[in-house]
Design a protein around this nucleic acid. Structure first.
Length: 284
DNA sequence: AAGGCCTCCTGAGAGC
DNA sequence: TGCTCTCAGGAGGCCT
């Protein structure tokens, strides 16, 4: 499940294989991942033919491949999206959706996506920052991320803490896994009412999010199954570093109490019942 | 207007 | 054995 660290690993991998290369042809094998490109797959392919890739960029979980023309290919991995680098002629992956062929003989780049929550689109003038993601907040690793603004914004919200952390217009890059891990490190419950956060608590959440995502980035991202792999097909291996996510019944690393899994927003939240107790003021 | 719920997708695994 | 059900969840869209 790609969140910021996994997407950054993919960005770095793609940088090595796409930067400076000239696109020869783009083959769209399934229309679904092109749904955000309203002019359709054929238009997507024809616009890209002959263009040259610059260095890939990222904001939160969004990734884009700038082109020398000033436009860009905007992508999101969704739940199961992958970029793979393969020799020309290698067998197609079962869920291969888009293939980029190049003018040189250094192999092709493939977008593979089982569940197709992810996708690609052509962003006119999007090399610097695609207009389509102008609403996405900077992520905590962005040098221009404003900690004070985040603290003020989250304390103005009237919602639960984890809902706020997952809101990509407030802070981007955090998903279900790292939200749970950051909350555990901060010893806070996911339903704590955001308006009751002390400024220091809001600031500490940021620190914990940076630390846990930074640790995951150091080891190449988190993965639980074959759905996430970097561009070479290698899985991340941060799962052993997770304190609560997916750890139902296992002892809390701090106090040994069994980790609980609870339904939250049609998915799951994991917490320690002792060090992350239900707060007095909660918003579920 | 902000907050929150629904939907899109496929396949693995559980249960009967 | 084979069917059905549940779960995984990012984020746009839409309703209140």
């Amino acid at each position: 499940m790609p969140e910021l660290p996994e997407v950054e690993v993919v960005r770095r991998g793609l940088a090595e294989f796409t930067t400076g290369r000239t696109i020869d042809a783009v083959e769209v094998l399934h229309p679904r991942p092109l749904r955000r490109h309203l002019l359709g797959p054929d238009d997507f392919s024809s616009r890209l033919k002959g263009q040259v890739f610059a260095t890939p960029a990222r904001r939160g979980k969004y990734l884009w491949l700038p082109l020398a023309s000033g436009d860009a290919v905007l992508t999101h991995l969704g739940m199961s999206g992958q970029f793979r680098v393969q020799p020309v002629g290698a067998e197609d992956e079962k869920h291969l959706r888009v293939r980029f062929r190049f003018a040189d003989d250094r192999g092709e780049v493939r977008f593979v996506d089982q569940r197709m929550f992810g996708g690609l689109s052509y962003s006119e003038g999007g090399a610097e920052l695609p207009a389509e993601i102008a609403h996405i907040a900077r992520d905590p690793f962005d040098p221009l991320f404003d900690d004070d603004l985040f603290v003020a914004s989250i304390r103005r919200r009237k919602t639960g803490l984890k809902r706020a952390l997952l809101d990509q217009t407030l802070v981007s890059g955090v998903g279900n896994i790292y939200a749970d891990e950051a909350l555990w490190r901060a010893k806070l419950h996911y339903a704590k009412a955001t308006e009751t956060l002390k400024p220091l608590q809001a600031r500490e959440i940021l620190t914990h999010a940076r630390e846990v995502m930074g640790a995951a980035l150091d080891v190449g991202g988190t993965s639980f199954d074959a759905l996430y792999v970097n561009v070479n097909g290698e899985s991340g291996y941060f799962e052993r570093g997770l304190a609560v996510y997916g750890q139902e019944g296992s002892p809390c690393p701090r106090d040994g109490r069994p980790i609980r899994r609870e339904p939250f927003m049609n998915r799951s939240s994991f917490r320690c019942p002792k060090c992350q107790p239900v707060p007095r003021h909660a918003r579920w």
